[in-house]
Nucleic acid binder design. Sequence first.
DNA 1: GGCTCCATGTAAGGAGTTACATGATTCA
DNA 2: TGAATCATGTAACTCCTTACATGGAGCC
Lengths: 202, 202
Amino acid sequence: MTRRRASLTELEGAVLGVIWSRRSITAYGVRQRFLSSPTRGWSSSHGAIYPAVERLIRYGFVAADPARSDRRATKTLTVTQVGSEALRQWLMGLEEWMGGATVDPIRTRVNYFSILSLEERKSYLADAERNARAALAELQDFTPDPAAHDSWGLEAASVGIRLEVEARLKWLGILRERLEAENPAAPESDPGQCSSIGRTEA
Amino acid sequence: MTRRRASLTELEGAVLGVIWSRRSITAYGVRQRFLSSPTRGWSSSHGAIYPAVERLIRYGFVAADPARSDRRATKTLTVTQVGSEALRQWLMGLEEWMGGATVDPIRTRVNYFSILSLEERKSYLADAERNARAALAELQDFTPDPAAHDSWGLEAASVGIRLEVEARLKWLGILRERLEAENPAAPESDPGQCSSIGRTEA
DNA sequence: GGCTCCATGTAAGGAGTTACATGATTCA
DNA sequence: TGAATCATGTAACTCCTTACATGGAGCC
């Protein structure tokens, strides 16, 4: 119950949420949950999760009891009363900027598209579409944590994930069409013209 | 031209891209670009950008020339030949995971929705929708950097931003409807029943 | 007995946030 | 001359990544 920041970090909040949604789980189990999340970019390294759990314990938000019937250092984590209130507060602590767009590595790169040749752009878009489609396919097989005591939220979130990836796919399709419209595939004629487009820099 | 990582970080890549898209710009100007980006979550702190620029200079990707007609320490940054190749390589270095969903703070919180009361959930969704709508409205006024030498990519990216936020808005609408369908607004009758739903934990 | 998981930790190094600190330029 | 803005940097702190390190449990 040490001094702590005004509010939880995203990782701490998510870890607290996972423990809560399982009623009890080990730190190792928390990591498994993060690993199996369809959302890429969740830090699921030991070096991030164990310290985060430790902090939650220090704050008094999580109780760690040595697991009986296991001579290992295995600890069973549970959310305390205080922790449950902290989780609720973190949840309700929406900030205005959160309504805006997230950082999307595919989109970041598109900003500087004009450095690429037409062929490179096409190849980029094809790669991106393939990756997005793969993510969507994986999503088909995804079932939210069956061990959670209530999966309304997990279900709801997975709908959001699907919509986000579908939006990305739609966007990539628009870009592909845009590119094709601007550079009609001149059939076997004058290939030199196309490949110079977009390479303003040597 | 010091030893460096195998590939650029997202921040380094984006900084390199900004410098390239302006042909030349100061580090301060790069920061202004990040600040005016409609994508939230871009680190735009001095403490992140100046060191990133320094690294790019060390790698030989960016040239820094003291600006004439300015007795301050102002340096004009330009992308070198090597840097332009590095930018192209970073751009084309798409990885598979990038097709997946990004970390969205609104969505993260929804995962643990079952800790909230019905009223709290409704309030959360209303807040989130308001924030997303505000982000969309700001996007209307947004024009990609007019000083860029080619804005195809910037334009294309801003379309993606719009689609992402619209998808978020659509998703939040679905959740709101879902919530209302499950808990029909019992008109002035038995308010106690509703407020207990979703609070399985004390 | 050996392999695969389960389970927890630590240490080095890199990077971002925030706050501190300084000074030039421009415009009214 | 004063205020706002342009412009750069540094230092403390925290956090994450990656790799290293250890050992029990369960199963064949």
